[in-house]
Design a protein around this nucleic acid. Sequence first.
DNA 1: TCCGAACGCGCACACGTGTGCACAACACTT
DNA 2: AAGTGTTGTGCACACGTGTGCGCGTTCGGA
Lengths: 342, 342
Amino acid sequence: MARRVSIMDIAARAGVSHTTVSRALRGHTRISAVVRGRIIELADQMGYVPNAIAQSLQQQQSCTIGVVISDIADPFWGEVVKGIDDVCTSNGQSVLLHAAAHDEKLQITAIRRLQQRRVDGIIVVDSQLGPSEIRQLEASGSPMVFINSQRTFESSSLRSVTIDNYAGGAIAADHLVALGHHKVAYFGSPKRPGSNLKRSLGFIDTLVAHGVQRSRIVQNECATDIADIDGGYTMAQALNEPGVTAVFCYNDAIALGALAGFRANGVAVPHKISVVGFDDLAMARYSWPPLTTIAQPKELLGQTAMHNLATLIGGASVTDAVLVPSLLIRDSSTPLLKGLRS
Amino acid sequence: MARRVSIMDIAARAGVSHTTVSRALRGHTRISAVVRGRIIELADQMGYVPNAIAQSLQQQQSCTIGVVISDIADPFWGEVVKGIDDVCTSNGQSVLLHAAAHDEKLQITAIRRLQQRRVDGIIVVDSQLGPSEIRQLEASGSPMVFINSQRTFESSSLRSVTIDNYAGGAIAADHLVALGHHKVAYFGSPKRPGSNLKRSLGFIDTLVAHGVQRSRIVQNECATDIADIDGGYTMAQALNEPGVTAVFCYNDAIALGALAGFRANGVAVPHKISVVGFDDLAMARYSWPPLTTIAQPKELLGQTAMHNLATLIGGASVTDAVLVPSLLIRDSSTPLLKGLRS
DNA sequence: TCCGAACGCGCACACGTGTGCACAACACTT
DNA sequence: AAGTGTTGTGCACACGTGTGCGCGTTCGGA
């Protein structure tokens, strides 16, 4: 942070007080036109760049939003952050980014650091925090919005924006039942217990409601320590349930891995087995076969979170937002052929 | 930025001056053990969170790094940012993120905003800046590192970290020639003129050096206004050059799109045509067929940039870094069958 | 000519933190 | 007892900006 020209330097050169410089640059009234003109010209000529740090200290607000994210390299979260950044930029705010893997301790540390930096508010993406940590955060008083959190909150300064995971699972079930499938599997991700549970419940409840027998619904979970895409690959290879003709996956990463896993086993998608994902990643359109999936409005997720955080910061209160997913039919799912019925 | 407890508040409660509190909390020597103990306990009990903004103002450094990026949703850049964040976090610094599409004006605006925030240094990812803007930035004095910039710099405070794009193109050519291909195409991206030119030159020069005739090298470019993956799809569908048996793509996104485009046209990869990408995205392993590609060390790119920026900030000088790409052979490239020779 | 109003500007403080210097109290040495 | 060194603490300032209040000047109207 090199020493730069301040309004004091300008004031000295212009032969006025720094007060006058400050007022002139901020477009204050009651400053004579000549003085203002000279100050503005001088500021430009001397290469003056206002010091936002000093402004923050004085104004008691930093115009900065903290974002805590589990994995910035994940393309899904990347799009969410893009939505956040969009709104921030048009609000004149900046994004302070902190990565913090799937780990409570790291997430808390990241939040503490952001609070030291006096961010105006915090967005936590994919939070893993437990009830005791939440209580701690409520006490800290910072407005916070959680995106796709695994929990809900009571405090007025803590809000959430989520996808209706249960409805997403239900949509997948409707789709597969409409195609005639009646023995199916769910490939889950235990890393996200909350959303995983809701998607699987929505899926299973709806299947049952459509008359599918519980014994004909297979549930698998991938190992916690591997990437989703690898998990999908492994689960597809390991699937050894005769008669399963469709799989609903927790997300697209698992589904794309599953496509590769089935292919390696010589199981044709969708003719032998239909695959449905969740998220609608950019890649999903271009996989082979193109992936049928439950689409999340990713950028909207980020934008909504940021809008709600802004109103929270403004002192108003907001309700939790729940966005709706939608079915995107491509080629990885197909009607069950009569000959294949078991 | 709610009003929080300051060292003055603690001082009042402890009956000492704020000086003593500051020294006690910073582990200064020459503070009596009893007083220190009481202050630390009091600070904890009152929920004191140090104000990093005031510290920045006083210390004349913000411990903050600005990152300007063209598209945070791009999985490639996501991994680069992860590398940056890693090093930042272990250095006790934070990342201020600003997105700024492929647009000079937006990028300059973003840089100005970061300078207002008095970041200690700036990393610009995928810069599109022209010579005049560069000169402007040199004058501003902020240490900056450009990742995969389309240009090189002379100023001592402006450094770059890049992949050896020419070598990458050469490796792809070596690979395809070794497989027996002698009529090939290049699918380029005009959005990144510098790296696109180098990759294509390395590719073509090496092909020619191996005795491939120039007339047998086809060059295509995708439209500027569409995503890479769509561009790859379109170029693959439009490719109408009889006898072309291999394609080298500017990046994996284009290559993945091309795989889908060829498939839609009934052109089998790799049996009819081999495809080689560049980047090694996480998806490349799981495409169909799994993509042969020139791998970039993405996280290392970010880490190196951040390391070099840190030394630059420390006042030392560094040289431009050039990292080497490596060939990753998967299933989208295969030896040319004799029967297919043209 | 006199008086109130409007105008243009500066003083002094606030925001929260860190630090050079000074000063008082105490321990130790001669 | 006097001098010297050490220890613990506070004063006052700095960092850069914004603003309430007050003061002097000018203007307009009676």
